[in-house]
């Protein structure tokens, strides 16, 4: 197993394989996204309580999974890059971040759009919402740190440390905000987890999740290729400057 990973973790092999896979992945994610959008907008029935607004959930919930999953993936990639000294892992961590940040933003925006008709307010300082807002802040800090440090290995170490700290921090923030909330006001109407989801609603949810995951993988691979090329040009410049 390890030799196999070593083989594909090498940037040259990665560039070859990802170059072949990328167009297929792109087509697949566009098709999947079209199907998922059609099912969630036209096929799925409207909710007897939420009406048409339930359709926002089909985008909102998968985005939330991917936003959180993206950050965890960054942390795992950072640990891999740190311990096993795999530059490709650092490249992957950097490549995931902007997509993850976008999904976090989508979660916040769609949540607000859904909250206005359902709760009568754009925003509440609930533990879950606040944690997602902090998650966006963590993503932005992570991206900014990468951009602020010139030398890639140094930037990878610093950003990796930040990602790991962030992963530990998110649950602490979640706990502290819910603690703060229970002291300030009892959370009453703001419970999403009511009755179990009906299969007709679950179907578009899972379809959308699959489509968005495919999209995320595609964008991440493309960004990884870009980053590798960027590093190669940087290396060539350094070499020509010193030759």
């Amino acid at each position: 197993m390890t030799p196999l990973i070593n083989h594909y973790a090498h940037p040259t092999h990665f560039m070859r394989v990802s170059g072949i896979a990328l167009p297929w992945l792109a087509v697949a994610s566009i098709v999947a996204l079209a199907v998922a959008l059609y099912v969630s907008l036209f096929v799925a029935p409207e909710d007897y309580l939420q009406g048409q607004t339930v359709r926002i959930m089909f985008l909102h919930v998968p985005s939330a999974w991917l936003a959180l999953g993206g950050y965890v993936a960054i942390a795992i990639a950072s640990v891999t890059g740190w311990i096993w000294k795999r530059p490709l892992a650092d490249v992957a961590a950097r490549a995931i971040a902007p997509t993850g940040a976008c999904f976090t933003l989508i979660v916040l925006l769609t949540g607000s759009l859904w909250g206005k008709p359902m709760w009568g307010t754009w925003w509440v300082w609930d533990a879950r919402l606040t944690s997602v807002a902090i998650l966006l802040l963590l993503y932005l800090g992570y991206i900014a740190l990468w951009n602020a440090i010139e030398e890639p290995t140094l930037a990878a170490r610093a950003a990796g440390a930040l990602a790991i700290i962030g992963v530990v921090n998110v649950p602490i923030i979640h706990f502290s905000v819910s603690w703060w909330n229970t002291l300030h006001q009892p959370a009453s109407v703001l419970r999403l987890d009511g009755p179990t989801i009906h299969p007709t609603l679950l179907m578009p949810l899972l379809l959308m999740f699959a489509a968005l995951s495919l999209l995320m993988v595609t964008i991440t691979l493309a960004r990884m290729r870009l980053e590798i090329l960027r590093r190669r040009t940087r290396m060539l410049r350094l070499r020509s400057a010193q030759a």
Binding site: L137, L140, N169, S176
Partner: peptide, 10 residues
């Protein structure tokens, strides 16, 4: 400041 802000929230 941006990095420390989430950490100092709790």
């Amino acid at each position: 400041l941006l990095l420390v802000l989430p950490l100092s929230m709790p």
